[in-house]
Write a protein that binds this DNA or RNA. Structure first.
Lengths: 132, 132
DNA sequence: GCTGTCGTTGACGTCAACGTAAAGGTGGAA
DNA sequence: TTCCACCTTTACGTTGACGTCAACGACAGC
Protein backbone atom coordinates (compact mmCIF):
# COMPACT_ATOMS: atom_id res chain seq x y z
CA UNK A 1 0.00 0.00 0.00
CA UNK A 2 2.38 2.60 -1.16
CA UNK A 3 0.92 6.03 -0.80
CA UNK A 4 2.55 7.74 -3.69
CA UNK A 5 2.44 4.91 -6.22
CA UNK A 6 -0.72 3.00 -6.95
CA UNK A 7 -1.58 0.08 -9.18
CA UNK A 8 -4.41 0.23 -11.62
CA UNK A 9 -6.60 -1.82 -9.32
CA UNK A 10 -6.11 0.53 -6.41
CA UNK A 11 -6.86 3.46 -8.62
CA UNK A 12 -10.10 1.86 -9.73
CA UNK A 13 -11.08 1.28 -6.12
CA UNK A 14 -10.22 4.80 -5.07
CA UNK A 15 -11.85 6.68 -7.88
CA UNK A 16 -14.57 4.29 -8.93
CA UNK A 17 -13.47 3.89 -12.51
CA UNK A 18 -12.68 0.83 -14.60
CA UNK A 19 -9.21 -0.21 -15.77
CA UNK A 20 -10.39 0.38 -19.30
CA UNK A 21 -11.12 3.97 -18.42
CA UNK A 22 -7.66 4.60 -17.01
CA UNK A 23 -5.96 3.01 -20.00
CA UNK A 24 -8.22 5.01 -22.24
CA UNK A 25 -7.28 8.23 -20.49
CA UNK A 26 -3.64 7.33 -20.83
CA UNK A 27 -4.08 6.70 -24.55
CA UNK A 28 -5.68 10.13 -24.80
CA UNK A 29 -2.73 11.65 -22.96
CA UNK A 30 -4.73 12.79 -20.01
CA UNK A 31 -2.59 10.90 -17.49
CA UNK A 32 0.94 9.53 -17.65
CA UNK A 33 1.44 6.59 -15.32
CA UNK A 34 5.00 5.30 -15.15
CA UNK A 35 5.89 1.73 -15.97
CA UNK A 36 7.39 -0.97 -13.87
CA UNK A 37 8.04 -3.55 -16.49
CA UNK A 38 4.67 -3.83 -18.12
CA UNK A 39 2.64 -2.56 -15.24
CA UNK A 40 1.39 0.93 -14.82
CA UNK A 41 2.05 2.81 -11.63
CA UNK A 42 0.03 5.92 -10.96
CA UNK A 43 1.72 8.84 -9.28
CA UNK A 44 0.37 11.64 -7.15
CA UNK A 45 0.31 13.76 -10.27
CA UNK A 46 -1.84 11.22 -12.07
CA UNK A 47 -4.27 11.22 -9.21
CA UNK A 48 -4.46 14.99 -9.15
CA UNK A 49 -5.09 15.00 -12.87
CA UNK A 50 -7.69 12.27 -12.57
CA UNK A 51 -9.53 14.29 -9.97
CA UNK A 52 -9.58 17.24 -12.32
CA UNK A 53 -10.73 15.01 -15.15
CA UNK A 54 -13.66 13.71 -13.15
CA UNK A 55 -14.54 17.22 -12.03
CA UNK A 56 -14.31 18.43 -15.59
CA UNK A 57 -16.66 15.73 -16.71
CA UNK A 58 -19.17 16.83 -14.09
CA UNK A 59 -18.98 20.28 -15.59
CA UNK A 60 -19.69 18.88 -19.00
CA UNK A 61 -16.26 19.43 -20.51
CA UNK A 62 -15.29 16.96 -23.18
CA UNK A 63 -12.17 14.91 -22.64
CA UNK A 64 -10.43 16.89 -25.34
CA UNK A 65 -11.24 20.15 -23.60
CA UNK A 66 -10.06 18.67 -20.35
CA UNK A 67 -6.81 17.60 -21.97
CA UNK A 68 -6.19 21.14 -23.11
CA UNK A 69 -7.01 22.55 -19.71
CA UNK A 70 -4.70 20.08 -18.01
CA UNK A 71 -1.91 21.02 -20.35
CA UNK A 72 -2.47 24.66 -19.59
CA UNK A 73 -2.27 23.94 -15.89
CA UNK A 74 0.95 21.99 -16.01
CA UNK A 75 2.77 23.91 -18.68
CA UNK A 76 1.83 27.45 -17.88
CA UNK A 77 1.61 27.32 -14.16
CA UNK A 78 2.80 30.85 -13.94
CA UNK A 79 1.77 31.92 -17.38
CA UNK A 80 -0.99 34.37 -16.82
CA UNK A 81 -2.10 34.15 -20.41
CA UNK A 82 -2.86 30.48 -20.08
CA UNK A 83 -4.81 30.94 -16.92
CA UNK A 84 -6.80 33.64 -18.61
CA UNK A 85 -7.63 31.28 -21.42
CA UNK A 86 -8.68 28.62 -18.99
CA UNK A 87 -10.81 31.17 -17.24
CA UNK A 88 -12.50 32.16 -20.45
CA UNK A 89 -13.18 28.61 -21.52
CA UNK A 90 -14.70 27.95 -18.12
CA UNK A 91 -16.87 31.02 -18.48
CA UNK A 92 -18.19 29.78 -21.78
CA UNK A 93 -18.99 26.44 -20.25
CA UNK A 94 -20.78 28.20 -17.44
CA UNK A 95 -22.96 30.04 -19.90
CA UNK A 96 -23.71 26.77 -21.67
CA UNK A 97 -24.68 25.14 -18.43
CA UNK A 98 -26.93 27.99 -17.41
CA UNK A 99 -28.62 27.87 -20.76
CA UNK A 100 -29.11 24.15 -20.44
CA UNK A 101 -30.60 24.65 -17.05
CA UNK A 102 -33.07 27.19 -18.34
CA UNK A 103 -34.19 24.90 -21.11
CA UNK A 104 -34.56 22.13 -18.62
CA UNK A 105 -36.54 24.34 -16.31
CA UNK A 106 -38.89 25.22 -19.12
CA UNK A 107 -39.29 21.63 -20.20
CA UNK A 108 -40.04 20.66 -16.61
CA UNK A 109 -42.73 23.29 -16.39
CA UNK A 110 -44.31 22.10 -19.63
CA UNK A 111 -44.21 18.50 -18.59
CA UNK A 112 -45.79 19.37 -15.26
CA UNK A 113 -48.58 21.07 -17.08
CA UNK A 114 -49.16 17.97 -19.17
CA UNK A 115 -49.18 15.88 -16.05
CA UNK A 116 -51.82 18.04 -14.48
CA UNK A 117 -53.91 17.67 -17.58
CA UNK A 118 -53.46 13.92 -17.36
CA UNK A 119 -54.46 13.98 -13.73
CA UNK A 120 -57.59 15.87 -14.56
CA UNK A 121 -58.59 13.38 -17.23
CA UNK A 122 -57.92 10.45 -14.98
CA UNK A 123 -59.84 12.07 -12.17
CA UNK A 124 -62.82 12.53 -14.48
CA UNK A 125 -62.72 8.85 -15.15
CA UNK A 126 -62.67 8.18 -11.46
CA UNK A 127 -59.18 6.77 -11.32
CA UNK A 128 -57.41 6.90 -8.03
CA UNK A 129 -53.74 7.57 -8.34
CA UNK A 130 -51.17 6.36 -5.86
CA UNK A 131 -50.76 9.09 -3.32
CA UNK A 132 -47.04 8.85 -3.99
CA UNK B 1 -51.18 22.55 -51.11
CA UNK B 2 -53.46 19.92 -49.80
CA UNK B 3 -54.19 20.44 -46.17
CA UNK B 4 -54.58 16.88 -45.09
CA UNK B 5 -51.82 15.32 -47.18
CA UNK B 6 -48.32 16.72 -47.26
CA UNK B 7 -45.15 15.83 -49.10
CA UNK B 8 -41.91 15.29 -47.31
CA UNK B 9 -40.68 18.72 -48.34
CA UNK B 10 -43.71 20.46 -46.92
CA UNK B 11 -43.31 18.52 -43.71
CA UNK B 12 -39.70 19.62 -43.45
CA UNK B 13 -40.73 23.21 -43.93
CA UNK B 14 -43.51 23.03 -41.41
CA UNK B 15 -41.69 21.25 -38.65
CA UNK B 16 -38.10 22.22 -39.31
CA UNK B 17 -36.75 18.74 -39.73
CA UNK B 18 -34.78 17.10 -42.53
CA UNK B 19 -36.12 14.46 -44.92
CA UNK B 20 -33.65 12.05 -43.43
CA UNK B 21 -35.21 12.56 -40.05
CA UNK B 22 -38.71 11.79 -41.31
CA UNK B 23 -37.55 8.67 -43.14
CA UNK B 24 -35.68 7.65 -40.04
CA UNK B 25 -38.77 8.08 -37.91
CA UNK B 26 -40.71 6.00 -40.38
CA UNK B 27 -38.10 3.25 -40.25
CA UNK B 28 -38.42 3.32 -36.48
CA UNK B 29 -42.18 3.00 -36.79
CA UNK B 30 -42.90 6.34 -35.22
CA UNK B 31 -44.90 7.59 -38.16
CA UNK B 32 -46.67 5.83 -41.03
CA UNK B 33 -46.90 7.99 -44.13
CA UNK B 34 -48.90 6.47 -46.95
CA UNK B 35 -47.45 5.93 -50.40
CA UNK B 36 -48.41 7.36 -53.71
CA UNK B 37 -46.20 5.31 -55.95
CA UNK B 38 -42.80 5.79 -54.37
CA UNK B 39 -43.55 9.05 -52.66
CA UNK B 40 -44.52 9.45 -49.08
CA UNK B 41 -47.61 11.39 -48.17
CA UNK B 42 -48.00 12.48 -44.58
CA UNK B 43 -51.44 12.50 -43.04
CA UNK B 44 -52.92 14.52 -40.23
CA UNK B 45 -52.19 11.60 -37.97
CA UNK B 46 -48.53 11.67 -38.92
CA UNK B 47 -48.39 15.34 -38.15
CA UNK B 48 -50.00 14.85 -34.77
CA UNK B 49 -47.55 12.10 -34.00
CA UNK B 50 -44.63 14.19 -35.19
CA UNK B 51 -45.66 17.00 -32.89
CA UNK B 52 -45.70 14.58 -29.99
CA UNK B 53 -42.34 13.21 -31.03
CA UNK B 54 -40.75 16.65 -31.06
CA UNK B 55 -42.36 17.46 -27.72
CA UNK B 56 -41.12 14.18 -26.30
CA UNK B 57 -37.62 14.94 -27.43
CA UNK B 58 -37.74 18.26 -25.62
CA UNK B 59 -38.65 16.35 -22.51
CA UNK B 60 -35.67 14.10 -22.98
CA UNK B 61 -37.54 10.96 -23.90
CA UNK B 62 -35.64 8.61 -26.16
CA UNK B 63 -37.21 7.75 -29.48
CA UNK B 64 -37.89 4.26 -28.23
CA UNK B 65 -39.76 5.62 -25.23
CA UNK B 66 -41.66 7.93 -27.49
CA UNK B 67 -42.60 5.04 -29.74
CA UNK B 68 -44.06 3.20 -26.79
CA UNK B 69 -45.96 6.24 -25.66
CA UNK B 70 -47.36 6.80 -29.12
CA UNK B 71 -48.50 3.22 -29.29
CA UNK B 72 -50.23 3.65 -25.98
CA UNK B 73 -52.00 6.73 -27.25
CA UNK B 74 -53.25 5.21 -30.47
CA UNK B 75 -54.12 1.78 -29.21
CA UNK B 76 -55.66 2.66 -25.94
CA UNK B 77 -57.28 5.92 -26.72
CA UNK B 78 -60.03 5.22 -24.28
CA UNK B 79 -58.22 2.66 -22.26
CA UNK B 80 -57.70 4.22 -18.90
CA UNK B 81 -55.00 1.73 -18.04
CA UNK B 82 -52.83 2.91 -20.87
CA UNK B 83 -53.25 6.53 -19.97
CA UNK B 84 -52.31 5.67 -16.44
CA UNK B 85 -49.16 4.01 -17.69
CA UNK B 86 -48.31 6.99 -19.80
CA UNK B 87 -48.90 9.20 -16.83
CA UNK B 88 -46.58 7.15 -14.68
CA UNK B 89 -43.83 7.07 -17.27
CA UNK B 90 -44.09 10.81 -17.59
CA UNK B 91 -43.84 11.17 -13.85
CA UNK B 92 -40.66 9.16 -13.84
CA UNK B 93 -39.25 11.33 -16.56
CA UNK B 94 -40.18 14.39 -14.55
CA UNK B 95 -38.28 13.06 -11.58
CA UNK B 96 -35.27 12.36 -13.80
CA UNK B 97 -35.38 15.86 -15.17
CA UNK B 98 -35.62 17.43 -11.78
CA UNK B 99 -32.69 15.37 -10.61
CA UNK B 100 -30.71 16.41 -13.63
CA UNK B 101 -31.53 20.00 -12.91
CA UNK B 102 -30.32 19.71 -9.36
CA UNK B 103 -27.04 18.18 -10.44
CA UNK B 104 -26.66 20.91 -12.97
CA UNK B 105 -27.40 23.55 -10.39
CA UNK B 106 -24.77 22.10 -8.13
CA UNK B 107 -22.22 21.89 -10.89
CA UNK B 108 -22.93 25.48 -11.80
CA UNK B 109 -22.36 26.58 -8.25
CA UNK B 110 -19.08 24.68 -8.10
CA UNK B 111 -17.89 26.07 -11.37
CA UNK B 112 -18.78 29.59 -10.27
CA UNK B 113 -16.71 29.09 -7.20
CA UNK B 114 -13.76 28.01 -9.29
CA UNK B 115 -14.24 31.03 -11.48
CA UNK B 116 -14.14 33.35 -8.52
CA UNK B 117 -10.96 31.73 -7.41
CA UNK B 118 -9.54 32.26 -10.87
CA UNK B 119 -10.61 35.87 -10.81
CA UNK B 120 -8.87 36.37 -7.53
CA UNK B 121 -5.63 34.91 -8.82
CA UNK B 122 -5.80 36.97 -11.96
CA UNK B 123 -6.56 40.09 -9.97
CA UNK B 124 -3.51 39.47 -7.82
CA UNK B 125 -1.47 39.40 -10.95
CA UNK B 126 -2.97 42.68 -11.99
CA UNK B 127 -4.88 41.32 -14.96
CA UNK B 128 -7.82 43.28 -16.13
CA UNK B 129 -10.67 41.14 -17.33
CA UNK B 130 -13.14 42.20 -19.95
CA UNK B 131 -16.02 43.83 -18.15
CA UNK B 132 -18.30 41.50 -20.11
C1' DG C 1 2.91 -28.23 -11.46
C1' DC C 2 -1.55 -26.20 -11.22
C1' DT C 3 -4.79 -22.66 -10.31
C1' DG C 4 -6.16 -18.06 -9.44
C1' DT C 5 -5.61 -13.22 -9.49
C1' DC C 6 -4.03 -9.23 -11.53
C1' DG C 7 -2.06 -7.25 -15.11
C1' DT C 8 -0.98 -6.42 -20.26
C1' DT C 9 -2.03 -5.30 -25.53
C1' DG C 10 -4.64 -4.57 -29.61
C1' DA C 11 -8.76 -4.36 -32.03
C1' DC C 12 -13.39 -4.42 -32.79
C1' DG C 13 -18.26 -3.44 -30.79
C1' DT C 14 -21.76 -0.33 -28.78
C1' DC C 15 -25.33 3.31 -28.46
C1' DA C 16 -28.41 7.31 -30.50
C1' DA C 17 -29.93 9.93 -33.89
C1' DC C 18 -29.35 11.01 -37.59
C1' DG C 19 -25.63 12.95 -41.71
C1' DT C 20 -23.92 12.13 -46.10
C1' DA C 21 -22.89 10.23 -50.41
C1' DA C 22 -24.00 7.56 -54.45
C1' DA C 23 -27.07 6.49 -57.87
C1' DG C 24 -31.17 6.87 -59.77
C1' DG C 25 -36.68 7.77 -60.77
C1' DT C 26 -40.45 11.34 -62.07
C1' DG C 27 -42.99 15.10 -63.58
C1' DG C 28 -43.31 19.71 -65.15
C1' DA C 29 -41.40 24.06 -67.37
C1' DA C 30 -38.69 26.28 -71.05
C1' DT D 1 -35.74 17.53 -75.40
C1' DT D 2 -33.36 18.86 -71.83
C1' DC D 3 -33.10 20.52 -67.54
C1' DC D 4 -34.38 21.07 -62.86
C1' DA D 5 -36.37 20.38 -58.50
C1' DC D 6 -37.90 16.99 -55.76
C1' DC D 7 -38.21 12.52 -54.50
C1' DT D 8 -36.47 7.67 -53.78
C1' DT D 9 -33.21 3.74 -52.00
C1' DT D 10 -29.10 1.59 -49.91
C1' DA D 11 -25.43 1.81 -47.17
C1' DC D 12 -21.55 3.52 -44.81
C1' DG D 13 -19.92 7.53 -41.61
C1' DT D 14 -20.12 10.34 -37.37
C1' DT D 15 -19.41 11.45 -32.31
C1' DG D 16 -17.76 10.27 -27.45
C1' DA D 17 -16.53 7.41 -24.04
C1' DC D 18 -15.72 3.72 -23.12
C1' DG D 19 -17.15 -2.05 -23.12
C1' DT D 20 -15.83 -6.48 -24.49
C1' DC D 21 -13.02 -10.07 -26.20
C1' DA D 22 -8.99 -12.79 -27.28
C1' DA D 23 -4.70 -14.20 -26.03
C1' DC D 24 -1.15 -13.83 -23.20
C1' DG D 25 2.66 -12.75 -19.09
C1' DA D 26 3.87 -12.63 -14.02
C1' DC D 27 3.54 -14.03 -9.66
C1' DA D 28 1.41 -16.11 -5.31
C1' DG D 29 -0.13 -19.94 -2.74
C1' DC D 30 -0.96 -24.81 -2.35
Amino acid sequence: MNDSLMTIGQMCESYDVTPRTLRFYESKELIFPIREGQKRLFTKSDRARLKLILQGKRFGFSLEEIRQLLNLYSIGDQQTTQLTQTYELAQERLRDMEEQREELTEAIADLKEQLEWGEAVLAERGVKLAAE
